[in-house]
Computed example of a mutant assay.
Amino acid sequence: MLLKLIPFYQFVWIDELMLYHRKHQKNNTNHVKETADCLKSTIEETLRNWGNVYAPVFRYEGECIILDDLIYIDV
């Protein structure tokens, strides 16, 4: 939802814990591989929607995916 709002509103970074995430056995985020795949797809789709001027560089730590860098694409 937040990614759909970004093009229309300004956001600021708040360097403070704003919520607590309760973890239990049935959390979807316990499925690390599926969560990593969804995150990667979301980042790629969002960058395309924002003009496709950056290419994401991902790295993995175990099954966890990390957005390591954004490379500017000179169009």
Rank of each mutant, 00 (worst) to 15 (best):
L5F: 12
E34K: 15
N49G: 14
I66D: 04
T42Y: 02
N27T: 05
V75W: 10
F58E: 03
E16W: 02
Q10V: 07
H21S: 08
I73G: 04
N27V: 02
L2E: 14
Y20A: 10
K4W: 04
T35K: 04
E44F: 00
T46S: 15
T35V: 03
I43F: 02
L2R: 06
W50S: 15
P7F: 02
P7W: 01
G62K: 01
P56H: 00
E16L: 04
T46N: 11
L67S: 08
I6N: 08
G51C: 03
M18E: 07
K23S: 10
H31K: 12
V53P: 00
C64Q: 10
V57W: 02
N49M: 13
F11T: 04
L67H: 08
D15V: 01
H21W: 04
C64D: 09
N28R: 04
T42Q: 08
K33R: 13
D68G: 07
D69A: 15
F58Q: 06
D37M: 09
C64F: 11
E16R: 14
T29W: 04
V57L: 11
N28W: 00
N49Y: 03
N30R: 03
D15E: 11
H24R: 10
V75A: 09
G62H: 02
W50M: 14
I66V: 15
M1R: 06
I66H: 12
Y9M: 11
H21Q: 13
I6W: 11
D74Y: 12
D69M: 05
E44H: 00
Y20I: 06
Y9R: 11
V12K: 14
P7N: 07
I65T: 08
H21M: 10
H24M: 06
E63Y: 00
V32I: 15
G62A: 01
E61I: 04
T29I: 04
H24Y: 12
E45S: 15
I14F: 06
L70N: 13
V53C: 11
Q10R: 12
K23P: 00
F8N: 09
E44T: 04
T42D: 10
S41F: 01
L39R: 09
I65S: 03
R22W: 05
W13Y: 11
L3M: 07
F11N: 04
G62M: 01
D68W: 07
C64M: 12
I66Q: 10
R22K: 13
L70G: 11
V12I: 13
L17T: 15
L67E: 09
Q25V: 12
D15M: 03
A36R: 00
L3S: 05
H31R: 12
I14V: 14
Y20D: 13
I14A: 08
R48K: 15
L2P: 02
K33F: 08
M18R: 09
Y9E: 14
K4V: 03
K40M: 03
G62F: 01
Y9D: 09
F11L: 01
V53G: 05
T35M: 04
L70P: 02
E34F: 05
P56C: 03
I66N: 06
Y20T: 09
D69Y: 05
T35Q: 01
L47A: 00
I6H: 05
H31F: 10
N28E: 14
Y54H: 15
F58P: 00
Y9V: 14
